[in-house]
């Protein structure tokens, strides 16, 4: 208990800027920034201040581990020696400040894919190893938040190196890993009242999440539903754009493309989306997923069945971005509940 108290620090909200200035000397600092009327995570520029009074960011911070565009090879002319971009990945350590627990959960989900015993994605791993995450408790979950449905919650701390809780005009910062603790060791210790107040907030936090979906048995049920007519129903209003997949913190499909300009070239990993027809189009013209319903099915199946089958966890963290930003308001919570309501007949059970 004593030890854990020592790891509880605090800082006045208006002092945060100074702390950041200090940290910037040794670290690249990634934090939420206000832009127009939304909030984006990005690398703080010179004199840029973070904006921490936000519900959640428009983009998902996954892009700092799995960038939308990332060089994997650079070359000039034709190469005959090994080329690698790995040495060039900035070795400067990074801090992501203010990441919401749902987004941190998504990184834990992605770890299973990018770092497993079959193959390790070195680019992802390098960024992962070089980054300290300071989670940020959610005092005001949105109506579209349903993180508690996925063994997570507004004060879920797994995956954080440190964890920030906003109380009044202070941030209570808890050191979790050695790296996290070390970073805040110069801050003042939080007193008992603060720790108590923090405990109060955390205690009832899960009840503040307004929305939930029941995912028990969904993976098993989906296995029997591949041929079900529900997919055509669900996908009818889908426009086939990539908003849901690109804003999703757990979507991880990518494309590999080469680009050459004046004899200089690079090979890049780019995000790709299963909602685009070209995603699975064969060179021969053969198209295994020709229709919108097949692509929608792939997205839902991948998250709620395939991923669970391969890695033991559902690839959704309940952040609600796909719901709020879909141009035609396709709501994944609704999809899950309609899957739940499907009564399987014998003909669906192969």
């Amino acid at each position: 208990m004593k030890d854990s108290l020592n790891n509880m620090k605090y800082i006045e909200k208006n002092k945060l800027v100074e702390l950041i200035k200090e940290l910037k000397k040794d670290y690249i600092l990634i934090a939420p920034v206000k832009l127009k009327n939304f909030v984006l995570f990005r690398e703080l520029k010179e004199n840029e201040e973070p904006y921490l009074d936000f519900l959640n960011s428009r983009n998902s911070p996954k892009e700092f581990f799995f960038p939308q565009t990332e060089n994997i090879v650079e070359f000039e002319g034709i190469i005959d020696k090994r080329v690698s971009k790995l040495e060039d990945i900035k070795n400067k350590k990074r801090i992501i400040l203010g990441m919401r627990p749902c987004d941190i959960k998504s990184i834990l989900i992605l770890d299973k894919l990018f770092i497993n015993e079959d193959y390790v994605d070195n680019y992802y791993k390098r960024l992962r190893d070089n980054t300290l995450i300071f989670g940020f408790g959610c005092n005001k979950p949105r109506t579209t938040c349903f993180c508690t449905s996925f063994e997570s919650g507004p004060f879920f701390k797994e995956g954080s190196d440190g964890f920030i809780t906003a109380i009044g005009d202070k941030f209570i910062i808890e050191g979790i890993t050695e790296g996290g603790k070390k970073l805040i060791e110069k801050l003042e210790n939080a007193d008992k009242d603060m720790v108590k107040a923090k405990g109060e907030i955390e205690k009832n936090a899960n009840d503040t999440v307004p929305s939930s979906v029941k995912v028990e048995k969904i993976p098993e049920k989906l296995r029997e539903m591949f041929e079900h007519p529900i997919w055509e129903e669900i996908s009818e209003r889908c426009l086939g754009c990539g908003v849901c997949t690109y804003l999703c913190p757990t979507c991880h499909c990518f494309d590999i493309q080469d680009e050459v300009i004046n004899e200089r070239g690079r090979r890049v990993k780019n995000w790709d989306s299963c909602m685009f027809p070209i995603f699975t189009l064969h060179g021969s013209g053969h198209q295994p997923r020709e229709f919108r319903y097949q692509r929608m099915r792939q997205r839902i199946m991948h998250k709620f069945n395939y991923y669970e089958e391969n890695f033991g966890v559902i690839a959704c963290c309940g952040c609600g971005r796909c719901i709020t930003q879909c141009p035609v308001n396709i709501d994944v919570r609704e999809i899950i509940s309609s899957i739940k309501n499907v009564k399987l007949t014998i003909s669906n059970e192969k």
Partner: peptide
Amino acid sequence: NRMKCGIGKCGRCNIGPKYVCK
């Protein structure tokens, strides 16, 4: 199937939960 990474990460060549590449 259409493939890119060949190591079961890029997510396009799956048939159900199985990746054709891996």
